[in-house]
């Protein structure tokens, strides 16, 4: 178990969103979370990365055997937790390559490795840009500024590939992507799969799951995981929706 969430209760503002959620991510596995709008999917991912919107009122999230709750967002990131944002924010004037090198070197220092100099980093970044089908000018543009929806999503995947995290949360990485972009993004993600890493894929659609081939499907509804099953569940959810799950309990 790399990430273990027990009886998690969390609020946004005054509203309780997560109501005793339990979820365990296994090493080397891809977990998909599906569920109706407003079920708490984004709140769950925000709770894991320590987003300021979310207040945890009970329960625990442990990562590699230690509680995450006291750690700052940057400490969680340095420990190897990564989240791709649904709508990556634009940061004018901050060079994309400079930003990403700063982030990578912060991680490398944390891991006791030597920092990469600008030349070494650019070589690494350019390799990944080519693989993701991104334009070379991503090196010189400002972080997410004026990026199209697809460019923003690919840039999230680029960051994931370079930072090599251990737990990867993909919050609707597929939304707004055309089929080519979806393929490129999925290939990037699949390339990261190995026996130590685990993925938490939050999505509304089965499309991306055809590429990512998740090991588990969890249904999140009313602030709890109500059902966990294999990938076969996706088809049933696509055709019948989520109402029957409540009925089952």
């Amino acid at each position: 178990m790399i990430l273990d969430i027990k009886n998690l209760h969390a609020k946004i503002g005054d509203k309780e969103i997560l109501k005793g959620l339990n979820l365990s991510l296994e090493k080397g596995k891809v977990h998909a979370i599906m569920g109706p709008n407003g079920a708490g999917k984004s709140t769950l991912s925000k709770a894991i990365v320590g987003h300021y919107d979310v207040e945890i009122t009970a329960g625990d999230i442990s990562y590699k055997g230690k509680s995450l709750l006291e750690l700052s967002p940057e400490e969680r990131a340095l420990e190897g937790i990564f989240m791709s944002f649904q709508n990556p924010v634009e940061v004018p004037g901050v060079n994309n390559a400079y930003f990403l090198r700063t982030a990578l070197n912060a991680k490398r220092i944390h891991d006791g490795k030597e920092e990469l100099n600008a030349a070494q980093f650019l070589r690494l970044m350019r390799e990944h840009l080519t693989a993701l089908g991104m334009k070379p000018d991503m090196v010189s543009r400002s972080l997410n500024e004026g990026f199209s929806g697809g460019e923003k999503k690919r840039n999230e995947i680029l960051q994931m590939l370079i930072l090599e995290p251990d737990v990867i949360i993909l919050d609707e990485i597929d939304s707004g992507l055309d089929i080519d972009a979806l393929k490129a993004v999925s290939e990037g993600i699949n390339q990261m799969k190995d026996e130590k890493r685990s993925f938490l894929v939050i999505t509304h659609y089965s499309r991306i799951l055809d590429y990512l081939k998740p090991d588990y499907i969890h249904v999140l509804k009313d602030g709890k995981i109500l059902k966990t099953a294999g990938v076969d569940l996706v088809e049933k959810l696509e055709s019948e929706g989520y109402d029957w799950i409540k009925d089952e309990l």
Partner: peptide, 10 residues
């Protein structure tokens, strides 16, 4: 938050 989520301190 975006920058901090990538491991850059506040």
């Amino acid at each position: 938050f975006y920058l901090r989520q990538r491991g850059i301190n506040e």
